[in-house]
Amino acid sequence: MLARYIIRRSVQSFFLIWLSTLIGFTIYQAAPGGPVQFLEDDPKATSADVERLATLYGVNRPIVIQYIAWLAGEDWLPQSETWRSGRCLADPDRCGKGIIRLDFGKSFYFKGQPAIDVIIERMPATFILGAASLFLSIVGGLPLGIYAAIKRGRLPDHVIRVSTVLVNTVPHWWLGLLLLIFLGGYLGLVPLSGMYTIGDGSLLDRLHHLILPATVGAIGGWIGFSRILRFEMLEVLNLDYIRTARAKGLSEKAVVYGHALRNAIMPFVTGLSGIFLLALSGSVLFETVFSWPGMGRLFITAVNARDFPVMMALFVIGSFLGVLGLLMVDILYSLVDPRVKYDVAN
């Protein structure tokens, strides 16, 4: 049953990923400008220059053909300028093979570097920051949620609720910028940019650079986690077995941590796989603010430069990870909670 379910969901997932590339491509085409826009406002380049480069890159082909070439490659297309890019016409070795053959294409902005190389180069930074943020948000968010639940309706609960709402009303990246200017600029407590000091790169130095971006990145998680956990805890604390536990004289500690937390935390653990995607999307803002050399910053660069191969590659990778996360959540649910059944019959 489960195997069939997974297969069916995987097929759906691929369809979903394809759909997201279509949406990404449409948005890209609808936006003004294109990969050669950098030349259009450059007085040194004439319109003939722009035309020549557009043909070379193949970006003046009809939109549908550009999408087909990106999806399935251009080496099988007819030998003409309408169908193939100038590069492909001049040298068959340089034809794009298309995403279905795992060729993400060559970046325009990065002057012919393979889009996937440009991305892979920046992956570790994003994962480090994402993992650190996640860690901090769990360490910060769980206790807050538990505490708020235990003290429900009393002062600590109100303080936590009001303060998390307040912090949440401020854009986190902006808060990050302020903290950066205050803590880094005025007090000199944290470095102003980058992943490590040039020429240093020791673990301590890296942690020093990581602390502020990771903390700011964790704020959203803190708030989210503490609220979810508070809600789940309250639900569980009202259940009969907790009353039983209390009735048989267990200490409050044992009741809360031994019995309530274990059950309350379940939906939370399964939800973590989706968090991965959240970290990725958050990275776009935080990486820009903290000049963190990761994929999020790259995405901004690629969008601004209308660098369509890099942008689309990030889209595909992002949606792949997202879909994978969702799939994992579903499967995890069935493993964790035997009551969940996958009925593929209907």
Partner: peptide
Amino acid sequence: MNLKLSRNYLWIMSLVVVASMTL
């Protein structure tokens, strides 16, 4: 999940939250 939850810890956490808000 053996989270040691001391009053001290929570106090610091809330302080951080309040401090960043003030900031």
